[in-house]
Design a protein around this nucleic acid. Structure first.
Lengths: 339, 339
DNA sequence: TTCCGAAATCGTAACGTTACGATTGATAGA
DNA sequence: TCTATCAATCGTAACGTTACGATTTCGGAA
């Protein structure tokens, strides 16, 4: 018996002596169909390996059951972009669970973002869009809102518009990080920032300042580092700090490379990390688990962020009148003993 | 004037007083249409922002202009999975350039791989599939070949079947790596392998052995490390090697963590890396650029691998009789001075 | 027996596109 | 003038699905 590779509704209908309509309804448990018929139809459909054709359905209903995530890709430096991997994981897994497929649309910095968005939707490529790498007063937001295209943003843009987003509470994380150091008796706390990514630097600085002044401590500009830190640059910077008359006993690193440099500097000064010198680091890579020093890691569950984005987008597609998801995700700050 | 958001062929046809057929043909430069008509049609279509509807076309032609990459996702350890990021970048960019969209389909280890493949194709979700994480005698290959479903594999499976693949020449890279160390005067060369990923370990060992015996050197099992190396484990292992009566002067690391451990061990022994002790490392992260020691990095251009996969897949879809792409990609082994 | 209403099933049309054969109109040769 | 030929355009059908209204069937009440 030849197995038909792509059975359609009509084949199943004729095999059962039913109409296409009834089969279609039976497969989605329509109340008009006799329960016994539903059973028979489903049995045959399963046996034949029937899968509803995506495009036939999309053409009829106007819905594609597909989501598209627009991710800027830049070859430059994958280590600092590593959080994208769990994000993609969360997006794809959650999309599947909701019955959607997920396309990734890579953009290069030169392209016109709106042109892409527009083509994508007109071609019927997606029911909804995830946009990332928000800038302040992002023009894509009014553009998409104006066209009633379902979307959700990873990150917030300024402005008063009401739209769906999921964002990471970077200010809160910095606040928590400094508080952890304060609990450990640190009074002079250094903060390592980046120059390029202004947004992050600004909000981290805000969290730092809030925690410091909250504890009645003043902010020493000497202890704030603005630089495009490589491992080596970080080592130099931390070494200089440790040479100060009143050296810091706590440090909030910018990223993994900053951490490696700081560890190196501390070792040269014969400081015991976790006792004489406390370090907090953002750890997207789980690298902390593999290091030997006790550290304070702050992690953001990017898989969960990806899942939430899909959740919020699907809700908007399926129930357009529901309020927009506006979620600010806390990070987890935890002590990694590395005994 | 109200701008219609999703103009279709019929609207353009009536606006021009032409038939839908002629407009359709004009837009793809059909030879039956008068050149002037083609111009007129294109002008109106552009002005209206016409984009052909994906699903209408797919339903008619059976082709979806979509590719799907099946990527296993495992939350465990993103650092060792980081090469996936440039791979995804290459896949998505090349897909766009060929006029295809790219969906990512995440699988978890528990799922039946064939079940997924079959559903995907039956539903009309993709014209072709990229499969990854090949195992020896991979059952997906005969499955897909038997159903004439276009696919390409990242990696090779054993067996005599003829199918399209792109693979990285890990054996050649190991061979090259050892030769670089030999050129620098190393005679005792250590090789750090992993236990888990047998495939890689086996082929790297082969390249190592070929280079060593080629230089008339014997292989000392003491210098071969099989372990699930963390940074700490690597530091311990390298320290033990350096304590041997005849310590190695060259090392091929398993990965970035192995490198960090090795650097640490060398520093403790007061060895100068790049002079007393030479290290080769696989560098997917460009981490080497940020370190201070002179290193030999072997890199594989994963963006190019992703592009080649798409290239090979698209060729198979569009010209089914063309020979399968069977590409083995060389890595680049280069000295990073880090002056 | 006849009729009513509900339950179950059926038929038609439409989504937007393209393939294919049919039709129109013009030109040129007999 | 008639016809063959060719270029240009048109009309119809079909891809697989679902929405919606029409139709059939059957049990029970009048």
């Amino acid at each position: 018996m030849a197995v038909n590779l792509r059975p359609n509704l009509r084949q199943i209908a004729t095999e059962l002596g039913l109409s296409v309509t009834t089969v279609s309804r039976a497969l989605k448990d329509g109340p008009e169909v006799h329960p016994d018929t539903i059973k028979r139809v489903k049995a045959v459909a399963n046996a034949a390996g029937y899968v509803p054709n995506f495009h036939g359905r999309a053409l009829r209903t106007g819905l594609t059951q597909a989501l598209t995530a627009i991710l800027p890709m830049e070859t430059r430096d994958y280590l600092s972009d590593i959080a994208k991997l769990p994000l993609i994981e969360g997006l794809t897994l959650a999309a599947r669970e909701h019955g959607y497929s997920l396309s990734i649309y890579s953009t290069t910095p030169e392209e016109d973002p709106q042109e892409n968005l527009s083509r994508l939707i007109h071609a019927g490529g997606a029911d909804g869009i995830v946009i990332t790498r928000m800038v302040s007063e992002d023009s894509r937001i009014p553009f998409l809102l104006g066209r009633s295209i379902p979307f959700i943003a990873f990150g917030r843009s300024g402005g008063a518009l009401d739209y769906a987003f999921v964002d990471v509470d970077n200010e809160g994380i910095a606040f928590q990080a400094v508080n952890m150091l304060l609990e450990r008796g640190c009074r002079r706390i250094a903060l390592q920032l980046l120059t390029r990514e202004d947004q992050y630097s600004t909000v981290r600085m805000a969290g730092y300042a809030k925690a410091m002044t909250g504890a009645g401590l003043s902010i020493d500009p000497q202890l704030i580092g603005h630089e495009d830190f490589t491992m080596e640059a970080s080592e130099r910077w931390v070494t200089r700090l440790l040479d100060l008359p009143e050296p810091p006993t706590g440090l909030v690193c910018a990223n993994e490379l900053g951490l490696l440099g700081a560890l190196s500097a501390a070792r040269r000064k014969s400081l015991t990390v976790g006792r004489d010198f406390h370090i907090v680091v953002r750890d997207s890579t789980h690298m902390c688990r593999y290091l030997s020093a006790p550290l304070i890691a702050h992690t953001v569950d990017m898989v969960a962020v990806g899942r939430s984005l899909v959740e919020g987008l699907v809700r908007q597609i399926e129930r357009p009148d529901a309020p927009h998801m506006q979620l600010v995700v806390d990070g987890k700050v935890e002590f990694i003993a590395n005994a």
